[in-house]
Design a protein around this nucleic acid. Sequence first.
DNA 1: GTGAATTTAATGTATATACATTTAAATACC
DNA 2: GGTATTTAAATGTATATACATTAAATTCAC
Lengths: 151, 151
Amino acid sequence: MMMRLEEAIKQKEFKDPYNKLVVNLLYTHSYLVTAQNGLFKPYDLSPEQYNVLRILRGQNGKPLTVSSIQDRMLNKMSNASRLVEKLKSKELVQRVECPTDRRQVDVSITEKGYQVLNELEKQVSEFNHSVINLGESEVIQLNELLDRLRK
Amino acid sequence: MMMRLEEAIKQKEFKDPYNKLVVNLLYTHSYLVTAQNGLFKPYDLSPEQYNVLRILRGQNGKPLTVSSIQDRMLNKMSNASRLVEKLKSKELVQRVECPTDRRQVDVSITEKGYQVLNELEKQVSEFNHSVINLGESEVIQLNELLDRLRK
DNA sequence: GTGAATTTAATGTATATACATTTAAATACC
DNA sequence: GGTATTTAAATGTATATACATTAAATTCAC
């Protein structure tokens, strides 16, 4: 049930390709996260919470401060402090006051966090393939275009 | 200050291009809406509220029911009912009980809604060009890939 | 060294998203 | 025709986003 954007949102035409592209990116994003939510729901994690876990694991045990997590997050405007609080209440991360700078907080993934993440990871990877209806060379091309799109 | 995704989120590498693409789409979306918010802010409209106005204007005066608006929205999960309420309180749309089916509500754009929309439209179009750092043929290519990506 | 400026995280508030539930009206079924 | 089912919109609740403000600790400037 592939659909051109124009059919999907019942719009006759766009002013020009640039205007269509902005709408297309918004629409494709919605398509993606709607599917993603179903994947994360059974684990009681949101996509951004999963992403924070992934970021922490990438540190190989070394903790990250809240602001460093924020820097690495996909959505720069979201609130790392509150996401960390949510993950902590699920015992997936731990927060320790940084000894060299008491303003900062060292956040690291817990054993339980690793377990949940590893379990989810395989499914996420399969999902990412299944949700994208393109061949590998097209996917590479799309990545290049998106990387260059942003100024 | 163009950056490959890997630099932007300080991640060494991705498992494969499909996994990178999902993250790339999420990240590019965030880049886009962050910029968009600045554009809409002075008009006290959110991007989705703007989109609803645009949808209603596309009807050339004919009203749409709340569920038809929902169908045409970019985010199928968002709440058309509450967005319409917000727009009504700003007097940008009007709501009339549908005479043939009292469950339904006919929503249409007001004169004031037209004015705001027309004023914004030029800026939005300029913005859409300026935010995309690609040539027209690449933009067309990107649109085609996104349309095919979705199943 | 003391006060000003900056940095880090947390908090407050409004809006939006995600999804379940409710209410009312219309349609289907017997 | 009366009950059951379906449909449309609204509402409830939790989470997330966007952005301003606050509080505490650190750094800078003199």
